[in-house]
């Protein structure tokens, strides 16, 4: 292996220090917290894995975990499908591409909180423009705030709306990188547009798809503001997701130990998901499949 020269090390130091201070040290401290009982105004008491036991035996935690699992998977995969479809559309050429592009990217430029609140107003049962439209179409009262499945569907919808531009960009960039001459060769070989998509575009976009899946799973796992601003986990803690559960234990019930334990459980969960996709990517690279 090549030895790093001192100047190179010196230049890497600031970044590493920063990472140490904002990521490594807090993580270690949070891990230490998760092994202690702790609340406002009291000293830490070492309790071993008790906090993990408390969390893992809490029905609220499992409800939140299940909600997270469902919402995250729905968000990531639906978003991926829409992004692939839209990227393929853009690749085939759309009218007024610059304007269309700006429109598609717009949600990403809107602050998350503002976006969620506007959706909330539009979906407000009885007064919101979308809710009233749905009601006037004869679907009955659109009362998502009392129906956990409906509320989580709304959360899913808003989350997809907000993050779609990110996934779209990654996938579209991946598709743009495919040389045009491959499509020409395929046309000469007799491929229909549909076959071009399935046999050329999609297989060559898989690396971009895997990357966007990793990013989105890890991001989506932290899902918080959509739920917090829409339902705050209610009714009866039925729509909580893991991040909301964590927030509740930490800041509503003041149990920093269990909140920290939840935090570490979330990290392990998202690492688990990410590692599946990283492994898939690694395998493709070994096979020389990109």
């Amino acid at each position: 292996m090549r030895r790093l020269n001192p100047a190179a090390i010196l230049m890497l130091v600031p970044t590493h220090l920063l990472l140490l201070v904002v990521i490594a040290l807090p993580s270690i401290y949070v891990f230490w917290l998760s092994l202690n009982e702790s609340t406002y105004g009291s000293d830490l008491t070492f309790v071993g894995l008790d906090n993990y036991v408390t969390v893992l035996t809490s029905s609220y935690f499992w409800r939140a975990a299940l909600n997270t699992l469902i919402v995250v998977n729905a968000v990531v995969y639906i978003e991926l499908l829409i992004a692939i479809g839209m990227a393929a559309l853009f690749l085939g050429g759309v009218r007024y591409p610059k304007i269309m592009f700006a429109i598609v990217l717009m949600p990403y430029a809107i602050s998350e909180v503002v976006g969620v609140l506007v959706w909330k107003i539009m979906l407000n049962s009885g007064s919101g423009v979308l809710a009233r439209t749905i009601e006037s179409l004869g679907f009955g009262m659109f009362n998502w705030s009392v129906s956990p499945p409906l509320a989580l569907s709304v959360v899913t919808l808003i989350s997809i709306w907000h993050h779609l531009p990110f996934t779209f960009l990654l996938i579209y960039a991946g598709m743009l990188a495919i040389p045009k001459s491959l499509y020409e060769a395929a046309r000469i070989d007799g491929a229909t547009p549909w076959q071009e998509f399935w046999r050329i575009t999609l297989p060559l976009t898989i690396p971009a798809i895997l990357i966007s899946l990793i990013f989105r799973f890890v991001f989506a796992f932290r899902l918080f503001s959509e739920v917090w601003l829409l339902t705050a986990g209610g009714p009866a803690r039925l729509t909580e997701v893991l991040a909301v559960y964590l927030y509740q234990s930490g800041f509503k019930y003041g149990e920093f130990g269990t909140a920290s334990a939840t935090g570490w459980l979330m990290v392990i969960g998202s690492l688990g998901v990410a590692s599946i996709y990283l492994w898939a990517m690694h395998r493709r690279m070994l096979k020389g499949n990109d």
Binding site: S181, L182, A185, D290
Partner: peptide, 9 residues
């Protein structure tokens, strides 16, 4: 084609 345009996958 000049750049061969072989399907890489």
């Amino acid at each position: 084609f000049q750049d061969y345009a072989l399907y890489p996958h």
